[in-house]
Amino acid sequence: MRNWYMMALVGKDRPGIVAEVTEALFAAGGVLGEASMMRLGSNFTIMMMVEIEGDEKQLCEALQPVTERLELHLHLDSIDPGLHQHQIPDLRVLVYGADRPGIVAQVTGALAESGFDITDLDSQVGGDSEKPIYVLMIEGVASAGVEVTHQALEPLSESVDFRVEEIETLIG
């Protein structure tokens, strides 16, 4: 029986991780769905949908030589693939400021309250190590529109800079 899993893999970044992992999955008869992979700090992270003939144990076994050699931590969850159901984001929010605890919680809390559904978020810590800055890029579906989202974030404007803009999608 074929099953879908969400596979999370984390390890110290080095060249060749993606190639070796996907080769092992291919050799095991695996099929890949959507994936998001990126370097966070000095770690490489993989979130990937995998369909395989077999169960979790067989998937772990197929990956074991690679995860051992590359010292990757593996986590698997059984999922419903839900492919071909993309949501089109209609709003983008950029937030940046001096890094401090609570930025993400406050920003996303305010967004959630205004009815904003996040489809994509990525954040980076930049600046130098004495004066780090935090940059947060969020896309999502805003049920209430740009002004309401802007107002929802306004109380945070003392400590962060932010911009809210519509994403208009042309279907041609």
Partner: peptide, 13 residues
């Protein structure tokens, strides 16, 4: 920069 989709490329923008 803008977001696009296409009738000839369903479910992708």
């Amino acid at each position: 920069l803008g977001r696009e989709g296409c009738m000839s490329v369903p479910d992708y923008t």
